[in-house]
Amino acid sequence: MKIRRFLELKNKRCLTEKSKLTDSSTVGKVITRNMTDWRIADDICQHGDDFVLAHLKYPLNTPIYVYTEEVDQYVSKSVINRGEQETSNVAIIIDYMKRFPNAVFLDIGANVGVFAITLATLGYRVIAFDCQIGNAARMCASMKAGGLTDKLTVVHNAVSNVHQKVSLSTGKQNIGMTWLVKPQLGKPTVDTVSLDDLLEIYNFKRAVIKMDVELSEVKVLTGAFNFFHQVRVEAILMEFLQSPVDSKFGESVLDFMKSHHFAPNDTNKLNEWEFNKWDTHDILFVRK
């Protein structure tokens, strides 16, 4: 009986320890979650021979690791040649973080981390999500090179509304165009997490979000019921595209925004909720 009681207590302690990741223990780390548990993923944080060191123009000479131009003709090529990518959108996020300096910036679909590295370098707390292991590894390398281990956490998971394993499909020479598909034979898989899962670790009260997840936005939002209840989200910058397979996609996103007291930013000069008339794909939703 004593041995069984000892083993029960030991198992209980182990389960408790697995769930004891905190903000302070995850900052400067790559973390990941399977169906049940979070862990620190030091195995992902490895520097590869194919990492290309580039520098952002702002903040001046910020180191950032990207892909070769041959592999990534879009984000990496732009960063290598111009030191920037999505400059106007990065400026929007900087502006909102200046307004709410105690907020946490969530970069959902971070790619190699242009937004995440920029905001962390400016001194803000950042949690960056990406499903591509190569992106997570590069952000880790950038974090170390830029001395950001007190500001940035990288989450290597896809963000959704359920826990499952998925495979990834990626556009030709375009790492940023990655979307989730059902597990496929011979393809690696990655686990999904929800924003609600973050509440197992973090207790922050305010956030600003950038979301670029290739038509998974509805799943991200519907997997964040508790998150939006507990965290005051001030702004969401979203790549808003019409789904070719889901005619209700746009309406579902806007219904969520309305129900959580967000509206398209007036400076976008949009026809309020008439998304079929919007002439831009990058939409800033702000709290009313």
Rank of each mutant, 00 (worst) to 15 (best):
D150M: 01
V159F: 03
E234I: 04
A207C: 10
D197V: 03
V166R: 11
N161M: 06
I127H: 08
K144H: 13
V126P: 15
H229S: 11
N157L: 06
K151E: 01
E200G: 05
L168D: 03
R125P: 04
F227P: 04
S167C: 08
F228L: 10
Q164W: 00
I201Q: 02
A128C: 12
F228R: 08
T149H: 09
F228E: 09
A207H: 04
R206Y: 00
V233Y: 02
Q173C: 05
G146M: 07
T170F: 00
L152N: 06
T170H: 01
N135D: 11
E214P: 14
T121I: 00
A207M: 04
E234W: 06
R125Q: 15
D191Y: 15
V162G: 00
V190T: 13
M238Q: 11
S142A: 09
L221P: 08
K248G: 01
D150T: 15
F228N: 09
Q184P: 02
G147A: 07
I127P: 10
V181F: 00
V166G: 02
N174T: 05
I201F: 01
M139A: 10
S243C: 13
N161K: 14
V231I: 12
H229D: 10
Q132H: 10
T192C: 10
V218E: 03
I236K: 04
F227Q: 05
V159K: 08
G134L: 08
K210R: 13
S194T: 15
T222R: 14
I209Y: 01
I175D: 02
T121W: 00
L241P: 02
F225R: 14
Q173S: 08
K182Q: 14
E200K: 12
I175E: 06
E234K: 15
G171D: 12
T189V: 15
T153Q: 03
T192N: 11
T149P: 00
Q242F: 11
T153M: 04
Y202V: 01
M238E: 05
P188S: 11
F204R: 01
F129Y: 15
K248V: 03
E214K: 10
E217P: 09
K165V: 02
K205C: 02
A224Q: 04
V193I: 15
T222C: 07
V155T: 07
G176F: 01
M177W: 06
K219R: 11
L119N: 06
G146Q: 09
P188A: 04
H156E: 07
I209V: 14
